[in-house]
Design a binder for these strands. Structure first.
Lengths: 203, 203, 203, 203
DNA sequence: TATGAATGAGGCTTCATTCAT
DNA sequence: CATGAATGAAGCCTCATTCAT
């Protein structure tokens, strides 16, 4: 942000120390989000480094494995949902709207909640589960007792089902499909919106 | 390129001749079903050949590419659903029960209706779509006009959503989850059963 | 020719014994000629069997290896050149015309005299050499003492050079190029023609 | 697809870092030159990597496909010929002498001008053509108007013919044969020599 | 004797991961 | 700290060759 860095002359990139590290991390997460969205979660990691404009080594410094990169990407989505749930006037339908926005926006996020990854030994599954739980927790805080999804695993099941509904759709169709899916489940959804905040630098 | 020796020493594993062809094909389909179920549709094809106990070449003779192997696996499932729909006393709930059985039984089948395969260049997508359409057609023949799923794409969407609900579950949980999913959608399902027929030899 | 064979009804091909063997051999040689011409000498042997309409086993019965198939193809060309040289009124220029015809006609023949096959362990090289020698012998019988090519290895060299001149050309250009090459060598060539004879059945 | 382990046990052969890049490239080009010369342009690429003492991956980093490897090998030869043609006192016979030296020296170079590559889908053909054109252009700049090769395609044809003349010969015979071939064409050739320059490091 | 399936070695290519500079 | 080359295992696919029927 302070623009004090970058290539000083024509030579090697200046070593800005930790400052650069943060910038690189942000670039990597952004690149990973794009690459995973475009090519799926099995995309070559080198593609991420390339798109971020950093060497492979840096990628490994920040993310020891694929699961870490996936988690970093999804972390941002989940945090926004949590933030939406933290807002003073949050409602179940409102949080659902934010969730739906992420489902619509980030193809990578789709993978989190609906991905078929049997036999995955890379730990993506475990990470996904953890993130999934956080999403459910955020939602459940606003779930009325009499809500049709209030029973047992119905909430998690529903989120997975809606996620699946948008798989394979183009970005244009996703919102429509997600809303149709919620409608089939008889669930009311608030406005589909993001939840921008002050700490967007690495999400 | 000109001289592709082969083994000089003489011995060579059994060659059961053409008789083995049918047996091998069946073994390959079975192996593919298991491997796809365990490791997903991106599993190494060589794993299928290995599990079937045949050489790589045989795999390629029977299935020129991954899409063909996938199609062979799913074809059986789809055909049974179609057969269930053809029965004289077929009902929507009944066919749904058969569909649910396959969802429960064959983890590979799951991939058909809910798989995330962005960037898939192998034609699996196209095949899946075709098979998906056949399933929907079979169902729609018995869909009452007043049914909650009778509108537009609701049927396809629902099937995809239920499929997603069972993803990642163990075989034991799948039936329970699938039924819970249908319940959330407000859809009644008949007995979860298979539809065995006389031509099971290669399905 | 007597048309007593072929499939009797709709079942397996009748086993006509030696009669069928000769027919198969001819079909294989013809197929090999076409395949080698189209795809080069490294073409898959299975393509030859397929085009000949026989099983792989038959191919191996007639030609134990690739070199044998190549030799069989070229044998026909060489024999015609020898026959041209045997004619009562044969002249050097005349035989050269026949040679040029084969160069033009049979892309496979091109390989014989000009092919780059270093490191070829399959014996094609040895066969080629032998056939090449026969061609030179046929020519030399009519070579006037005062001819520019009468010295040492000049004859063989020239044939190789002209062969090279037509490599890579389409069938249409080959005659033109071959004649241009002979002209550059200062050698007069008779009419470019074949030398059909009574024993065409397996050439 | 997701988990491509690598060796667990720890050790891993030396990695000399980027320093090795230039060295490796040179080794690869040298190895390719030898392998192509010995086994023809269809030689296994893995043989090149093996002879250069590098992994398969390195080969692919430097040469994305076979055509690139071939081009790298031949580029050096062609450049020297062009340099010979650029010398102040260059003559047609002189450049021909350098060309002949390369024909004699580098069996791989032979492939460039005389190779039979039907069914070549790898683009080697196109590259070869381009290089061939450069050679001809270098020669033509010094070709006297009254020269016997000054007409149309005679120059290219002649080079191809002479190239063919040395095919299959041992390195010792090649110079003799090439000169004999030029003599048969009635063309005078200057001293057979190389054209070393300052930038030999990777040719 | 002919068929055509099976075998499996080996070529090609892609990445995950390490590490000298 | 960052770079980016090297490594090599593993997946894909293609045939040459054999052999039961």
């Amino acid at each position: 942000m302070t623009e004090r860095s970058g290539r000083q002359d024509g030579r090697r990139p200046a070593n800005d120390g930790p400052r650069a590290a943060a910038r690189n991390r942000a670039a990597l997460v952004a690149a990973a989000r794009e690459v995973f969205a475009e090519q799926g979660l099995a995309a070559p990691l080198s593609a991420i480094a390339r798109r971020a404009g950093v060497g492979q080594g840096v990628l490994y410094r920040h993310f020891p494995d694929r699961a870490a990169a996936v988690a970093a990407v999804l972390e941002g989505n989940v945090r926004q949902i949590e933030r939406a749930a933290d807002e003073a006037d949050a409602t179940f339908a409102g949080v659902l709207g934010v969730l739906t926005w992420h489902l619509t926006e980030s193809a990578g996020f789709i993978g989190l909640l609906a991905a078929e990854r049997p036999g995955d030994r890379s730990g993506i599954r475990a990470h996904s589960l953890a993130l999934s739980v956080r999403v459910q927790r955020a939602l459940r805080r606003h779930l009325p007792d009499a809500h049709p999804l209030s029973g047992g695993e119905d909430l998690g099941l529903s989120v997975a089902m809606v996620s699946a509904a948008v798989i394979g759709a183009t970005r244009e169709e996703r919102e429509h499909r997600a809303l149709a899916a919620w409608r089939l489940l008889g669930v009311e959804v608030g406005p589909v919106r993001t939840c921008e905040g002050p700490e967007e630098h690495d999400v």
